[in-house]
């Protein structure tokens, strides 16, 4: 499953070098998700391994966002199973669900930072699950503050730490959002259309950063994209969804264009909203 066939200029993820394959961090088996009568995902299988960047492709409404949501317990799982870091998500609620969510870093298309709070506080919000009641006064331990600043160094915007998040440009905001996700010390990182609101140059740099995280931290990064070329350049593996089913999966070099285009051919209702 991992990236033996990755192009030479890429550093191989740690898992690829090991002879014994590590267990999948995310294991989705025969997953079905439905909103009432409306089946959005049907029989989806997906494994995500540490150190790989997996691109999720598909037309609007193919179920990309819903698949991401089902990995964080935001979508109603009606069949099959979704296991994240050893925890079955199906039927999980309350405190236990929050504990699993804490282990899944998420990055959103609209960044979803809290506009009036400082960049630093936004990053610190990523560790809320482990601060407990102390955060009621807006207090974070020095250790966490140091970690947050180091993460801001890593994404290259530590100099903006005190500015309100809304004063940053789109690309910078997405970097803050990535730092916030890393603050969770996640076991897996999900990025739902993270570059759809950015121009091509910023898109490249944000995807490059996500790739570095996958490789550097040895965690799986699942990124949904709607630009095929970006997926081919930046990912170790491409998974294609159509009408809620996985219809292709493979390394970028192995996929032929015809099959990729199949993802977007409009046989039926092309106008449905992205789920």
């Amino acid at each position: 499953m991992t990236v033996l066939g990755a192009p030479a200029h890429r550093e191989l993820p740690a898992t690829a070098r090991q002879s014994v394959p590590e267990p999948a961090v995310v294991a989705v088996r025969d997953l079905s998700v439905a909103y009432g009568e409306n089946a959005v995902l049907t029989g989806v299988d997906l494994d995500l391994f540490g150190g790989e960047m997996v691109a999720l492709l598909g037309a609007s409404g193919s179920g990309k966002s819903t698949l991401m949501k089902s990995l964080t317990g935001f979508a109603p799982i009606t069949g099959g199973s979704a296991v994240v870091d050893g925890h079955e998500l199906r039927g999980l609620r309350g405190r236990e669900l929050r504990a699993v969510r804490a282990g899944v870093g998420q990055v959103f298309q609209q960044f979803n930072l809290i506009p009036r709070l400082s960049v630093l506080t936004n990053v610190l919000a990523g560790c809320l699950h482990r601060t407990g009641p102390v955060s009621a006064l807006g207090h974070f331990p020095a250790k966490e503050r140091r970690r947050a600043l180091e993460l801001l160094d890593r994404v290259g915007i530590a100099h903006k730490a005190q500015d309100p998040a809304r004063s940053l440009s789109g690309g910078q905001q997405q970097r803050v959002a990535i730092a916030r996700a890393l603050m969770q010390q996640p076991r897996v990182l999900l990025a739902d259309e993270p570059v759809a609101s950015l121009d091509p140059r910023l898109a490249d740099s944000v995807l490059g950063l996500l790739r570095d995280i996958a490789v550097g931290d040895g965690i799986p990064v699942l990124v949904s994209l709607h630009v095929v070329d970006l997926a081919l350049v930046h990912s170790d593996r491409v998974v294609g969804l159509r009408d809620g089913r996985v219809i292709l999966s493979g390394r970028p070099g192995e996929l032929d264009t015809a099959r990729l285009l199949e993802l977007y051919s409009d046989e039926e209702d092309p106008d449905v909203d992205d789920l």
Binding site: T72, F74, R98, A99, V100, R101, A102, G103, V104, Q106, F108, Q110, F111, N112, L113, I114, P115, L117, A125, G126, C127, L128, H129, S135, A136, G138, A177, R180, A181, M183, Q184
Partner: peptide, 19 residues
């Protein structure tokens, strides 16, 4: 959006309201 983000980091309902 930010509400979803805070729920995604595993924040408690009180923390979601606060942050």
């Amino acid at each position: 959006g930010p509400v979803t983000a805070m729920r995604s980091v595993g924040a408690s309902p009180r923390q979601v309201v606060q942050f």
